[in-house]
């Protein structure tokens, strides 16, 4: 078992945890965290995939993909959290209006 495979399997395991969190949880914040974890797992798989030869230099293409993927994941998560905060805000205002 070479280290590359260990990293790839660990990444796949993290993906599974993230996916379970996304699909199994009811709380939206936990689902957002699940989606984020899924992304992290995928990035680990991609980094593991980049090491093609045991001794040679790693393939830079997957690294570039990880960078783009992180940009998508971070901006998506930020937007999700902003929306969640806005919803929370609206709920609180409604609650105050009722009192």
């Amino acid at each position: 078992m070479n280290p590359q495979l260990v990293y790839a399997l660990a990444g796949a395991w993290i993906c599974a945890i993230g996916l379970r969190g996304f699909m199994g949880e009811v709380d939206t914040f936990r689902r957002i965290l699940g989606a984020n974890l899924l992304g992290s797992g995928i990035f680990l798989v991609l980094v593991a995939v980049a090491r093609r030869a045991p001794d040679g230099p790693p393939d830079p293409v997957p690294h570039a993909m990880v960078l783009t993927g992180i940009v998508v994941s971070v901006s998506g998560t930020a937007l999700l959290l902003a929306l969640l905060a806005r919803l929370h805000e609206e709920h609180r205002e409604e609650g105050e209006g009722n009192e």
Binding site: A35, L46, G76
Partner: peptide
């Protein structure tokens, strides 16, 4: 929010498959 969550996860599954 629901749309974005689904779109992000769908995209991530696609990316994993591509990887």
């Amino acid at each position: 929010m629901e749309y974005l969550l689904q779109a992000l996860v769908g995209g991530m599954l696609f990316l994993l498959g591509a990887a």
